[in-house]
Design a binder for these strands. Structure first.
Length: 597
RNA sequence: GCAUUCGUAGCUCAAUUGGAUAGAGCACCUGACUACGGAUCAGGAGGUUUGGGGUUCGAAUCCCUACGAGUGCACCA
C-alpha cells in the first residue's frame, strides 16, 4: 500500500538481484525541488562494499526498478543520488486507499494508556502567556496521542495552597475594604476572580517591599529584613493556621480560591481546554511520607544525624537529594513521589507525562531516578515534556514587574484583530452576529495557538505581538483560509451537481496533484512521529505544507472549468480530501477551521 | 564556580536525525488569465550555519576549544 515501503522493498530486491548482497535498511528521502523525482536513494554508502562508483550503482538500480516494478516510472542519477519518479497509477492507488479509509488519521489502538498532566496553575494569579504555551502543548499532545491509538487521561494539579496563596489572602484582609467598609468581590469590582486575586498578590508584594525598605533604612541588613518584615511573619502564621484547620482562615481560603476557579473556568472555556481529572495540592501535599519510609526500609534512602532523609544519586550522575526535612515535614520531592503513586493507583496508566517548563529539568531527572530505584512498575514510562520559556521582545516576563502578557487580554486582542481583518475584507456579509463572533474567536484562537505550537516545544521562543497577529504566510489563519477556500469550491461544485467520490478512475495527473497525494499519504506517519517526539510542531508544519501545496494546485489547474470530466472528478475528490485532512490536522492542535471567512 | 540547554538570512522559525546548491514565513523589490475566494500564487534579492580546529566519501548536525545567551544548583514550590 505505502509507496515508500514498496520502493524500499524494490530497492532491496534490486540490490540482492544485481549485486548479490543486502542492505540492513534502505533510507529514502524526499527529492529536492530542483531535481525531478519524488524519492531519492543515496548510493554513497554502497560504494565501499561494492567497489563501484556511486553513479554506476544508481544507474543499475534505477534501470532495474524501471523494468521490474510498476511503482517507478522513470529515474535520473545525479552524482550519488538516485532520483525516482512514481507512476500515476501508483499515486491513484494510494489515493484510493486513503479514500477507502474512513478514519484516515486515526492510528490503530495501542492498547495502552497515557496520562498527560498539564496546566497546573497557581491560584494566586491569572494565567499568562507562558501558561498558554503549556496549556496548548498539553492539549495538543493529548489529542495527538489519542490519534496515535492511546487512551489518554488529561489531568491538572492545582497548586491551591502554600505561602504564596497566603500572601494574596493576607493582602485581601488588609486592603480589600472600600470606602463603605465592604470587602471587594468579583461582583462589586466587575473583575474576573483570578484577576482580582492577582491584584492582591501584587499589592502584597508592594507592601512587603515597603516594609523591607523601612527596616533597612533603620539599619537592619536586607536578608534579615526580608525574614522579619511583619507581613512575612503574618503570612507564615496564616499558613500555620491553615494547616491546623483554623475555620476563619480556611473559610477565607475557600472563598478566594472559588473566585479564582470561576475565572480559570472562563479562560479554559475560551481556549477550549478541559481535564478528565483535577487534583488539588491541598489534598496531595501530605502524600509521600510512606514512600520515604519504604525507601528507608529498602535501604535506598538514608537518615542523617539531624534525622533528615536523603538519597544519593551520584551513580546516576546526579547529586544527593533531600526527601524529608529534619523536622519530618515534606518537601516538593516528597509530594511528587506520593502524587505519582496516587495518579498510578487511580488510573494505572502505562505512561505518565508532565508538561512542565524546562526550569524543572533537574527536579524531574531526580524524581524519575528515585522512582526507578524504588522499583516502581511504571518507572520506565515517565516523561517530562520540558518546554522553553516564552520571551518578549522587551526581554523576560516578570510577574512582579508587570511585564507579563495576560492570557485573557491576549485572547481579546487576537479576537479584535480577527474582527478587524474580516471586516476589512468584507466576505461574510451574510453572517449574523453570533456567527460572526464565533468566527472571530475561531480565527483569533487559531492564530494564537498556531503561533505558539509551530515552534519546537523544547526551544525557547520569542513572542512578538506584531507577528502573532499576522494572518499571512505561515500562520493559523492562512491554513484556516485554505480550508474555507476549498469548502467554497466544493459548494460551487455541488451546485453544478458534482460530489466528491469514494474512488477515482485512472487519469494522467498534474505534478501538483501528485504532490498533494504524496503529502496526504504522509499524514499517518507524521502523526506517529509527532506522538513519538511529543511535538505538535510537526503537525503544524504538515498542515502548513498541505495548505501551501493546495494553493499551488489551485493556482495551476482549473477545477470546475476543466473540460475532462474525469479530471474534474479527481480534483473535486482530492479537494474534499485535502479539506478534511487540514481539518483533522488542525484539530490535533485544538484549532477549528471555518466554512467561510 | 559546577551542571545543563542553546547559538542558522535584517527578524521569527525549518532542515526527514550524517546527505545534493542549508529551506519557509515576515519585511523589501517585480509580476499574476476580467478570477473556482487576491487572508492567494509566481519570481528576485538576502548565508563563511557565532569563531577556530578535528572525525569521513560528505558536517548546521558528531568530538575538542574559545566566545555569547538561557536555565538549574534551598531542609522554596
Amino acid at each position: 500500500m505505502d509507496i515508500q515501503e514498496q520502493v524500499k522493498q524494490a530497492i532491496q530486491q534490486a540490490i540482492s538481484a544485481l549485486f548479490d548482497t543486502t542492505l540492513d535498511e534502505v533510507a529514502l528521502q524526499p527529492t529536492k525541488k530542483e531535481f525531478e523525482g519524488l524519492y531519492t536513494f543515496v548510493t554513497f554508502p554502497l560504494t565501499k562494499t561494492l567497489r563501484k562508483s556511486p553513479i554506476e550503482i544508481g544507474q543499475a538500480i534505477g534501470t532495474y526498478l524501471q523494468e521490474n516494478t510498476t511503482v517507478v516510472s522513470h529515474f535520473n542519477v545525479v552524482q550519488g543520488f538516485l532520483n525516482l519518479s512514481i507512476a500515476d497509477s501508483a499515486w491513484l492507488d494510494v489515493l484510493n486507499d486513503i479514500l477507502a479509509e474512513p478514519d484516515f488519521g486515526q492510528l490503530p489502538t495501542k492498547g495502552q494508556s497515557v496520562m498527560v498532566e498539564f496546566s497546573s496553575p497557581n491560584t494566586n494569579k491569572p494565567l499568562h502567556l507562558g501558561h498558554l504555551r503549556n496549556n496548548f502543548l498539553g492539549d495538543a499532545v493529548s489529542r495527538i496521542l489519542k490519534a496515535n491509538g492511546y487512551d489518554v487521561v488529561k489531568t491538572s494539579i492545582v497548586n491551591d495552597r502554600g505561602i504564596h496563596i497566603c500572601k494574596s489572602m493576607r493582602a485581601y484582609q488588609l486592603f480589600s475594604n472600600d470606602a463603605s467598609g465592604q470587602p471587594e468581590t468579583p461582583e462589586s469590582s466587575g473583575m474576573k476572580g483570578d484577576h482580582l486575586i492577582g491584584k492582591y498578590y501584587v499589592l502584597f508584594d508592594k507592601a512587603y517591599k515597603a516594609q523591607i525598605e523601612e527596616l533597612v533604612a533603620q539599619g537592619m541588613p536586607k536578608e534579615e529584613a526580608e525574614k522579619k518584615a511583619p507581613l512575612m511573619l503574618e503570612v507564615q502564621e496564616m499558613l500555620r493556621k491553615w494547616e491546623q484547620g483554623d475555620p476563619e482562615t480556611v473559610t477565607l481560603w475557600r472563598q478566594l480560591n472559588e473566585w479564582v476557579y470561576a475565572g480559570f473556568a472562563e479562560t479554559y472555556q475560551k481556549i477550549g481546554v478541559s481535564f478528565d481529572k483535577t487534583y488539588y495540592e491541598s489534598n496531595t501535599y501530605v502524600l509521600g511520607k510512606e514512600v520515604v519510609e519504604e525507601g528507608l526500609q529498602k535501604g535506598i534512602f538514608y537518615r542523617k544525624e539531624d534525622s533528615s532523609v536523603w538519597i544519593n544519586l551520584t551513580e546516576e550522575g546526579l547529586d544527593q537529594k533531600l526527601v524529608l526535612r529534619s523536622d519530618g515535614t515534606s518537601v516538593y520531592m516528597t509530594q511528587d513521589l506520593g502524587t505519582t503513586d496516587l495518579k498510578y493507583d487511580d488510573f494505572h496508566n502505562d505512561r505518565q507525562i508532565w508538561v512542565v517548563g524546562n526550569e524543572q529539568d533537574y527536579h524531574f531527572a531526580v524524581l524519575f531516578a528515585i522512582l526507578r530505584r524504588l522499583g516502581r512498575p511504571y518507572a520506565n514510562g515517565l516523561y517530562h515534556l520540558s518546554y522553553g520559556m516564552v520571551d518578549l521582545p522587551s526581554g523576560k516576563m516578570k510577574s512582579r514587574e508587570g511585564t507579563v502578557v495576560d492570557a485573557d487580554d491576549l485572547i481579546q486582542e487576537m479576537y479584535d484583530t480577527a474582527e478587524q481583518r474580516t471586516r476589512d475584507l468584507g466576505k461574510i456579509e451574510d453572517f449574523n452576529s453570533a456567527e460572526a463572533q464565533q468566527l472571530y474567536h475561531m480565527l483569533g484562537m487559531g492564530a494564537l495557538k498556531y503561533f505558539l505550537l509551530k515552534v519546537d516545544p523544547k526551544k525557547r521562543m520569542l513572542f512578538n505581538p506584531e507577528e502573532s497577529v499576522d494572518f499571512q504566510g505561515n500562520t493559523g489563519p492562512f491554513i484556516q483560509y485554505t480550508h474555507a477556500r476549498i469548502r467554497s469550491v466544493l459548494r460551487k461544485a455541488e451546485q453544478n451537481g458534482l460530489q466528491p467520490e469514494k474512488s477515482v478512475s485512472a487519469v494522467a495527473m498534474h505534478p501538483t496533484e501528485q504532490q498533494l497525494v504524496y503529502l496526504l499519504s504522509q499524514f499517518p506517519q507524521r502523526i506517529a512521529e509527532a506522538g513519538d517526539d511529543y511535538a505538535p510542531s510537526y503537525i503544524g508544519q504538515f498542515a502548513y505544507e498541505l495548505a501551501k501545496a493546495y494553493n499551488q494546485f489551485y493556482a495551476e489547474v482549473s477545477i470546475l472549468s476543466e473540460p475532462d470530466p474525469i479530471k474534474t472528478q479527481l480534483r473535486v475528490t482530492l479537494s474534499a480530501l485535502v479539506a478534511g485532512t487540514i481539518r483533522k490536522a488542525m484539530q490535533l492542535l485544538g484549532i477549528d477551521v471555518p466554512e467561510k471567512m
